[in-house]
């Protein structure tokens, strides 16, 4: 779909959620390269509502054929619940679950001021925000899969990612991945605390402006689970190039106020590498199918996927 057609469809669609009294004009569009699971368009809008003429900058986040193994349903529900509770999350303006309008489901949210580049000045506040997320009450959350008793937090994540991989295999399975998944099933720890989990936290996935965090972004992997899932992801995935492992652990323990169980933390490190390997497999399937011919999918299907597999094997088998 070309830009003119996309703008025409989006303009008409946004009239109702924006409560526009006339038409909505898209005056500028900028597609950003960050974020591989969604096509991200920053849009400048002009329209009138009951208060008069106005301009508004929004972001349209369009799914990409299930790329990286997630859809927008949990993401939008989670963002709306968190925004309503005062957590720093963008306001979701509209969510289109069908692919009728743009060929893929999408949602539109308010643009939030800030940059996602790493800034050590905001690291403490970020860890605090993540700990606050892990401390929110979850009794009223009915839109996420509940965690089973026993080893549910770990086993559900292992099976979630394994199934994502398995349903996107191209021709042959990966023996090392199959073995690593079994290793993790056999060593799943019992549940500790069950909390909201971001699922993809760390530098690059929060915005900051003038030294303060303005929003946590990319909620597509939000789920109920073990907060160690997030801590491990922060330390060894997104935060690995920002601070050392020891620096992150020291920071987390000081701000969250509890000692980290290093054995549990290392288990979740391996689960996060498994996640990376498995969601990258979706790129291979989608690229080979031709659903999305973009070369970033080839890169994720090959180099990114293999690098994650190497790290998974180094973590599990050494």
């Amino acid at each position: 779909m070309n830009q003119a057609e996309r703008h025409k469809r989006l303009s008409g669609y946004l009239v109702e959620p924006l409560q526009a009294t006339g038409g909505v004009s898209i005056t500028a569009e900028h597609r950003i390269a960050m974020g591989q699971s969604r096509a991200m368009y920053i849009l400048d809008l002009e329209y009138s509502d009951v208060s008069g003429p106005r301009t508004r900058r929004v972001v349209a986040r369009v799914e990409q054929h299930g790329h990286l193994g997630s859809d927008s349903r949990d993401e939008v529900a989670g963002m709306r619940a968190l925004h309503a509770s005062g957590f720093p999350v963008a306001n979701v303006i509209a969510y289109e679950e069908s692919d009728a309008l743009l060929g893929q489901p999408f949602f539109v949210m308010d643009f939030v001021e800030g940059v996602s580049t790493w800034s050590e000045d905001t690291a403490d506040e970020y860890v605090l925000r993540l700990h606050e997320l892990h401390s929110l009450p979850i009794d009223d959350i009915d839109f996420l899969e509940p965690v089973s008793d026993g080893k549910g937090a770990a086993l559900q994540e292992v099976e979630r990612w394994y199934n994502t991989y398995h349903t996107h295999i191209v021709d042959e399975p990966s023996p090392l991945l199959e073995e690593a998944a079994q290793y993790l099933r056999n060593r799943a720890p019992d549940n500790d605390r069950v909390t909201l989990v971001h699922g993809d936290p760390g530098p690059g996935n929060y915005l900051h402006h003038e030294g303060r965090i303005t929003a946590l972004v990319d909620w597509e992997f939000i789920h109920l689970g073990d907060p160690y899932d997030d801590w491990a992801y922060l330390i060894w995935m997104r935060g690995a190039h920002a601070l050392t492992e020891d620096q992150w652990i020291e920071k987390i323990e000081a701000i969250a106020g509890y000692r980290l169980d290093l054995e549990r933390l290392h288990y979740w490190k391996a689960v996060n590498f498994l996640m990376g390997v498995c969601i990258d497999q979706t790129s291979h399937r989608i690229y080979v199918d031709g659903s999305n011919p973009a070369p970033n999918l080839l890169a994720i299907a090959t180099g990114v996927h293999l690098s994650a597999l190497k790290r998974l094997c180094d973590t599990v088998f050494d």
């Binding site: 070369p295 890169a299 994720i300 090959t302 180099g303």
Partner: peptide
């Protein structure tokens, strides 16, 4: 073998 595409990414 994937280094050219990985490097570009």
């Amino acid at each position: 073998a994937a280094m050219p595409i990985m490097g570009a990414f």
